[in-house]
Design a protein around this nucleic acid. Structure first.
Lengths: 126, 126
DNA sequence: CGGCATCCGGTTCGATACTG
DNA sequence: CAGTATCGAACCGGATGCCG
């Protein structure tokens, strides 16, 4: 958290910083792989290879990158068991769970509007 | 809509089609420009140039592409007034409004967790 | 004003191979 | 098993210019 010296309300610079941070996070999170990973994790704890199987179509590389990004933003927790072969588990943090709620709504919405969308596509272009 | 002859429950082929359609829609919609446009439109009706101003950082080209995509999926309605100079207005359809609800939750979530995320970033890598 | 085409640099992404 | 590195191919996205 930023040190806020004496002013009771955030100054303009703070607001601008918050804005750009918000946009950055939004850009991180609003991409299909991140959202699908979050949805796949759900409330479970999965190994790397398990997530790989769950999120279909994702490559090894994209999964690594996105998991790192989510970890960096504090949305997933990464646990390494120093065994051989190595075992690494991923789980959503509490804030991650919150985001998952919204993702889940988006998935529901998609399912519910498949028909409408398919019909709209048939009409396009008008 | 697909003709469903006589079976009461969808057969396997239908389900697989629905799945791939769902993924396609999700991929279309789960990208930051699409989501930001939806959020910007809200319940208003905006001209092309107004959306361009509202969604900050978006280029003319990306806006056109994404508006087309959203229109194709029946999420925004495009109205052309054959005046000179031309006037084109965009508004969310009812299904689009539904999606907007989930987008809005995502934006709220982002705002609420700015602090947590910033802190998590400070700790990374552990 | 809004839309489309073109160009082109930067980034993404998948495939592959290699490490611990 | 999980992660990293590298290398092309594909795509994204901005800039520009032209048309109705």
């Amino acid at each position: 958290m930023v040190t806020k010296q004496f002013s009771g309300s955030p100054d303009e610079t703070d607001l601008r910083r918050a804005d750009s941070l918000a946009r950055e996070i939004f850009s991180d999170v609003a991409n299909k792989w991140a959202l699908l990973i979050i949805e796949a994790l759900g409330d479970r704890t999965l190994r790397f290879s398990e997530v790989l199987k769950e999120v279909d179509g994702i490559s090894h590389k994209m999964l690594t990158q996105n998991l790192r990004m989510l970890e960096r933003n504090g949305l997933v927790e990464r646990t390494v068991y120093p065994t051989v072969p190595p075992r690494v588990e991923y789980t959503l943090t509490e804030p991650g769970q919150g985001l998952r709620g919204t993702v889940h709504l988006m998935c529901d919405w998609t399912q519910q509007h498949l028909g409408h969308i398919e019909e709209a596509r048939g009409r396009f272009p008008s």
